[in-house]
C-alpha cells in the first residue's frame, strides 16, 4: 500500500507540470496584459520607456520559456510561488491564508451533499415508484437544474427586499467566532452542495435498486434479518462504492463552484483570490492558485481510491 501511495504521488509530478504549463501560457495570452492595466491605473503616460522599465522590473521582458523555468525553479529550489505583481506579497502566503476558507466551504458542501443525498437516495430506492419516490426525484432534478449562481443571487437580494435581512457579507473567521462562521458559511455551502446532493441521491438510488436485486440481499432476507439491517448493512455498503468514486469526480466541480459563490457571498477564499487575480492579470497568483487546486484535486482522488479499500475488501493496492 505504501508503494502504491508513493507511485500515485510520483504520478502527480507530470500531471502538475503539464497543467502548470497550460495555465502559465494561457494567462499570458489573455488580451490586455498587466502592463497595460498598470499603466492605465497610474496616470503615467503610456510611453515606450516606462513600459520597458515596468516589464523589466516585473521580469516579464524575458521570453515565456525562461519565465516558466524561473517560476518552476523557484518552486523546486526555494519552495516559493513567486510574488504578487501588484502587492509584491508572497503568493504562497496569500494562498495559505485563503486555502482553509475554501477548504471549509468545500467540505461543508460535501457534507451537505452526502447527508442529504444518501438517505434520500436510499428512501427513494426502497420506496421505488411510490409518491415519495417521485417527489424526491423531482426535487433532485430541480436541485440540478437551478444554477448555484442564480440561487445565490436570489438569496442575497430577495430577503433584503422582503424582510430587510441579508446574509452576512463581512467575513468572520472560524478562529474568531466558530458559530457565526459556520452560520455564515452554511448558506453558500447549501447552495454549493445542492446540485451535488442531487447527483449523489440519483446515484445512490440507482445503485440501491441494483444491489437490492442481488442474490445476497435475498440471502439476508431469507436469514430473517430485519429490513433495516438488510438495507443498511447489506445493501448500502455495496451501493456506496460508486458514490465514493463520484465524490472524487465532483471535487473539481466543487472548486469551480466555490469561485462563483465566494464572489457572491464575499467570502475571501481562493475563489475570490483567483477572480481578483484574473481581472488584474496577476500571473503568479493565477498560476499559484491553479497549482494548489491541482494538487488538492489529485490528493482528493488518491484519498478516494484509498477509501475503496475500506468499503470493498476485493480492492488490494499493489
Amino acid at each position: 500500500m505504501q508503494a502504491y501511495i508513493i507511485r500515485r504521488l510520483l504520478a502527480l509530478i507530470p500531471t502538475l507540470i503539464f497543467a502548470s504549463l497550460i495555465v502559465f501560457i494561457t494567462v499570458r495570452l489573455i488580451p490586455g496584459d498587466i502592463i497595460d492595466l498598470m499603466l492605465s491605473s497610474n496616470d503615467i503616460g503610456a510611453d515606450k520607456k516606462s513600459r520597458v522599465q515596468l516589464e523589466a522590473a516585473l521580469g516579464l521582458d524575458k521570453p515565456m520559456v525562461s519565465q516558466y523555468f524561473r517560476w518552476l525553479g523557484a518552486i523546486l529550489f526555494e519552495g516559493s510561488l513567486g510574488k504578487s505583481l501588484w502587492q509584491n506579497t508572497p503568493v504562497m502566503e496569500e494562498i495559505l491564508h485563503r486555502l482553509p476558507i475554501t477548504f471549509e466551504l468545500g467540505l461543508m458542501a460535501l457534507f451537505v451533499a452526502l447527508i442529504v443525498g444518501i438517505p434520500i437516495g436510499v428512501y427513494s430506492a426502497v420506496r421505488q415508484d411510490t409518491v415519495g419516490d417521485y417527489v424526491t426525484r423531482s426535487f433532485a432534478i430541480l436541485a440540478l437544474a437551478l444554477p448555484g449562481f442564480w440561487v445565490g443571487t436570489l438569496v442575497m437580494v430577495f430577503p433584503s427586499i422582503w424582510w430587510g435581512w441579508s446574509p452576512e457579507v463581512k467575513y468572520i473567521a472560524f478562529t474568531q467566532d466558530p458559530l457565526r462562521n459556520l452560520a455564515q458559511m452554511a448558506i453558500p455551502a447549501l447552495i454549493l452542495g445542492k446540485a451535488f446532493s442531487a447527483v449523489v441521491m440519483r446515484l445512490t438510488r440507482t445503485m440501491m435498486l441494483e444491489v437490492m436485486r442481488q442474490d445476497y440481499i435475498r440471502t439476508a432476507l431469507a436469514k430473517g434479518l430485519a429490513t433495516r439491517t438488510t438495507i443498511i448493512r447489506h445493501a448500502l455498503r455495496n451501493a456506496l462504492i460508486p458514490v465514493v468514486t463520484l465524490v472524487g469526480l465532483q471535487a473539481p466541480v466543487l472548486v469551480g463552484g466555490t469561485v462563483i459563490l465566494e464572489q457572491i457571498f464575499v467570502i475571501p477564499g481562493m475563489g475570490l483570490l483567483l477572480l481578483e487575480a484574473v481581472s488584474q492579470r496577476d500571473y503568479p497568483i493565477i498560476t499559484g492558485v491553479f497549482l494548489v487546486v491541482g494538487v488538492a484535486v489529485v490528493l482528493i482522488n488518491l484519498l478516494v481510491d484509498l477509501s475503496y479499500g475500506l468499503l470493498d475488501p476485493k480492492v488490494r493496492y499493489r
Binding site: 435475498r218 440471502t219 439476508a220 431469507a222 455498503r237 475488501p313
Partner: peptide
C-alpha cells in the same frame, strides 16, 4: 441458493 458466488455478501 444456487450460486454461492452471488448469494454471499461480498463486502462482509
Amino acid at each position: 441458493f444456487q450460486d454461492p458466488m452471488t448469494s454471499l455478501n461480498p463486502v462482509l
